[in-house]
Computed example of a mutant assay.
Amino acid sequence: MSSTPNPLRPPTPIPSARALLAANVVLLRHAKGWSQEALAFECGLHRTFVAHVERQARNIALDNVERIAAAFGVQTYELLLAPG
């Protein structure tokens, strides 16, 4: 079987790490029933910082990704997986 791309269907763009992080933070926060303020409290960050992460407006440090993951009780890498 050939791996030639279909010229009638453009390739699916790969989401950025920032977009994946934002989507996963929103999904996990909603699943827990937390506000942005509650998540910020749980991971020791400011509420506006959490809002910026969710809007992809911040270039977040890996240390803060780890803090968010710990607050949710997930592995850090899971915040960068495509939701689904």
Rank of each mutant, 00 (worst) to 15 (best):
S3A: 14
T4S: 06
P5H: 11
P5T: 10
N6W: 10
L8D: 14
P11W: 08
P13L: 13
I14N: 12
I14D: 12
I14W: 11
I14C: 08
P15G: 01
S16Y: 10
A17I: 09
A17P: 03
A17W: 09
R18S: 14
A22I: 01
V25S: 01
L27I: 06
L27K: 09
L28N: 09
H30R: 15
G33M: 04
G33F: 06
W34Q: 06
A38I: 12
L39R: 03
A40P: 05
F41A: 15
G44D: 00
G44E: 00
L45R: 13
R47L: 05
R47K: 15
T48E: 00
F49D: 00
V50H: 00
H52L: 09
V53P: 02
R58W: 08
N59Q: 11
I60D: 01
I60R: 06
A61K: 15
D63Q: 13
N64C: 02
N64A: 01
V65A: 02
V65T: 04
A70H: 13
A70F: 07
A70E: 13
G73N: 07
G73P: 05
Q75S: 04
Q75E: 07
T76W: 00
Y77Q: 09
E78Q: 13
L79P: 00
L80K: 05
L81Q: 11
L81W: 11
L81N: 10
A82S: 08
A82K: 14
